[in-house]
């Protein structure tokens, strides 16, 4: 195991985050605060509690997930796409590092960033609502595994992407809509029955539902299913990354 390489990549990526502090941390915090102000404080006043949880508090897990998903994907995608774009990836490819170590460095750093972000958003949320966490272990479980899974997904997108536009496409056209439609801001029980069924096909639903359960013990699907689903997603992404390195897809000829 080339520990020095993992740590070099990890530190390189984390340095990039500190350098781009505004973009990485400040802007998600600001946008989350805006959500709280608009949906929680302004509109939320007009809405009844959902399963006994005030709408403002109900929002928190959804907002954390929204940032976690989009930031994990874009951080990891950018992290690996950029060396591909500038050509500095030659160094990674010629170094005595295994695929596993490369992924650990890049995905580990991207996931760490998302986790820091998730925690900052939760802390921000306490300024607006009364936050309680019923199952801290499972809360962290969902937080960590979601960050990892979607950082892996971002890594895959970064390898696949041929241009900066493609880098934006997946987060913008897939992740954001799925998150909005996956019960981040509402319980799917509010939807007509047909749309409830459709929503069950949305993977993000399981993440949001499970994560929210760890806070308030209310969920759209049972937490066991959520736990199983997050592990399935993690497995799928790991499998794809394994395949990428095995075939050298878009990184090596």
């Amino acid at each position: 195991m080339n520990i020095h390489a993992i740590s070099a990549i990890y530190r390189f990526e984390m340095n990039r985050m500190w350098r781009t502090m505004g973009q990485s941390i400040v802007s998600p915090v600001i946008s989350t605060s805006l959500y709280f102000i608009v949906f929680g404080a302004a509109i939320g006043q007009q809405m009844g509690a959902i399963d006994g949880v005030s709408y403002g508090a109900f929002l928190v897990p959804g907002l954390v997930m929204l940032s976690l998903l989009t930031q994990s994907v874009s951080n990891a995608a950018f992290g690996i796409y950029f060396p591909k774009f500038t050509g500095t990836i030659y160094e990674i490819l010629s170094a005595p590092v295994s695929a596993f170590e490369i992924v650990l460095g890049y995905v580990g750093a991207a996931a760490t960033k998302s986790l820091i972000l998730g925690i900052i958003i939760m802390l921000t949320a306490t300024l607006f609502v009364d936050l309680k966490i019923a199952h801290p272990f499972w809360m962290l479980f969902f937080l960590v595994l979601t960050a990892m899974t979607f950082s892996l997904l971002g890594f895959i997108i970064g390898i696949w992407a041929d241009g900066f536009d493609q880098l934006q496409i997946v987060p913008l056209l897939i992740i954001t809509p799925l998150t909005f439609l996956g019960g981040s801001f509402y319980s799917i029980k509010m939807l007509p029955e047909f749309w409830q069924t459709v929503t069950l096909a949305n993977p993000v639903l399981y993440l949001v539902s499970g994560f929210r359960w760890s806070f308030y013990e209310i969920s759209d699907v049972s937490p066991q299913i959520s736990i199983a689903m997050i592990l399935v997603f993690l497995g799928i992404c790991t499998g794809i990354v394994y395949w990428i390195f095995k075939t050298g897809y878009r990184i090596k000829s």
Binding site: H4, A5, I9, R19, T86, G87, T88, A95
Partner: peptide, 23 residues
């Protein structure tokens, strides 16, 4: 092919780590 925002010292140290050597 170099990164743009890294310093000379950091980028050389990075490569050393990548190749498995301690700082």
């Amino acid at each position: 092919t170099t990164d743009a925002f890294e310093t000379v010292f950091d980028t050389v140290s990075f490569t050393r780590g990548l190749f498995g050597k301690p700082r």
